[in-house]
Design a protein around this nucleic acid. Structure first.
Lengths: 267, 267
DNA sequence: CAGTGGTCTAGACCACTTC
DNA sequence: AAGTGGTCTAGACCACTGA
């Protein structure tokens, strides 16, 4: 029974000592100015990296807790804490008796996480989308700023009309940096669920998004596509979607009819 | 070293055996139809009950994990899991080295949890409210339904105008069941933060809320109080606020100017 | 039946705050 | 120095799934 190594002390000196099984002990010197980072957070970062790198792809089953623990040289409880955190972020799905799986952007409510328009009677329909225009251009200053692009960077834009039932309810423009989606221009059709596209074709998983909502009056363009009158009240939703590493990926400006639908938010 | 008692088996038969230190063992019979409820969830429910009952009031320091564990006859780790869950719900605040405290509805971002109107430049101002009318009446069908009241129940209503900076931005009606707020009519003034009022005077803590957003055109009433024109686009926010035990407490219908502000949502 | 995640415990030690 | 929460480990057992 060898003495336990000190887990906390050696960490500031080496963030990468997970799994080396034998940390250095030269840490008695003062000036520990570094921020403390718990082991489970390091484990989580490592596992997230495997999602980003594509080593683990959506739907895939992860190794068991004990296997991961053994591989990284930590205890099973520590791995569990990292997995639980990732599950809370909807990156993973755990099923008792079956295993731990990489979350698929499609799954049921995961989808509704990013689609918050609900019928007033509470029924949740799934939108069908029709592309009404696509192209490539320079980014305007506003979008450039949000996507953190330089003035010479190009973007793809996709204009869509989305229907709930038969009625057109949303008209929107999705804007993507060409740099991250090089081959998008050659794609014949744009699928209904673009987040699944980002994931499957470009290895980019949208982790979270921030939305800004305003009330506006329907413009000519909006009224034409939604079949409402010029000047009708519409809900404008501006979204910035971020990847797992918190880099901005997509800008989206949606305009919604809220006569029979509403935007639902939980606080 | 006596044998460990079986923690899982005895639970379906007795949900209240926390702390008796000696559960019955007559559980071999079949037909375990009951839903399984983990120990930490039972602990959590007990602790939440102390918040609801007012035994623990906002700002108060809780006993240490070990004390609670000893009192309830469970391990410290189980208590921690319950406390962590409650912290995630913003019911408690934990400070390393100091202790665990009942969350105060005021605190910084806790407040902004329920106030999502932000200036377009990103600055978050705190709203000042002016009451423009109060009264008591029967509840209309829509509100009665949401607050789960019977046709003969009365409600209080409070109309307010809220300013961000100098500009009036929100006009709203807050509706409360008289049954839960008996003495509200005798109150001379309504404070700016009504959720602190619910907590301090009525022992009701708002745990979460659901909001429904729509775009509308400014009515006469709205235009008058917000100083905009009739027919300007406005954001209508309908909120149902729930207590810790998930019973509906407050209905609120707010109408907001979103010319220089937006409603921020994180997905 | 084996393998997985889920729960619970006991004990050690670290980090922070206050006295 | 004492007391708190925070982290980590090791091991036991329960509950669920699927072959």
């Amino acid at each position: 029974m060898e003495p336990k190594r000190s887990l906390y002390r050696e960490r500031p000196a080496a963030e990468f000592d997970i799994g080396d099984g034998d940390g250095g002990e030269m840490s008695e010197s003062g000036s520990e100015g570094l921020a403390f980072r718990p082991l489970y957070a390091q484990v989580r970062a490592r596992l997230v990296q495997r999602l980003i790198s594509g080593e683990w792809t959506p739907g895939m089953m992860l190794p068991s807790e004990f296997q991961i623990a053994k591989e990284l040289g930590v205890s099973q409880g520590t791995v569990r804490k990292a997995l639980d955190a990732m599950t809370a972020e909807h990156l993973l799905v755990r099923r008792q008796g079956r295993g731990t799986f990489v979350a698929i952007p499609e799954e049921s409510r995961i989808l509704f996480k990013f689609f918050r328009l609900v019928a007033d009677d509470g029924t949740r329909l799934f939108p069908r989308s029709e592309v009404i225009g696509r192209g490539r251009s320079r980014a305007c200053a506003l979008i450039r700023d949000q996507l953190k692009l330089s003035p010479k960077d190009d973007v793809w834009w996709i204009d869509r009309v989305r229907r709930l039932g038969e009625k057109p309810v949303i008209v929107e423009r999705v804007t993507l940096p060409v740099a991250r989606f090089e081959t998008l221009g050659a794609m014949e059709t744009i699928p209904n669920n673009v987040y699944a596209l980002y994931s499957e074709h470009y290895g980019i998983t949208i982790g979270r998004a921030a939305e800004k909502l305003k009330a506006k009056l329907a413009s000519d363009h909006v009224a034409t596509h939604l079949g409402c009158s010029l000047g009708d009240p519409v809900l404008q939703v501006e979204r910035l979607a971020l990847a797992l590493d918190d880099t901005p990926v997509e800008h989206r400006l949606s305009t919604c009819l809220t006569e029979d639908f509403h935007y639902g938010a939980d606080l």
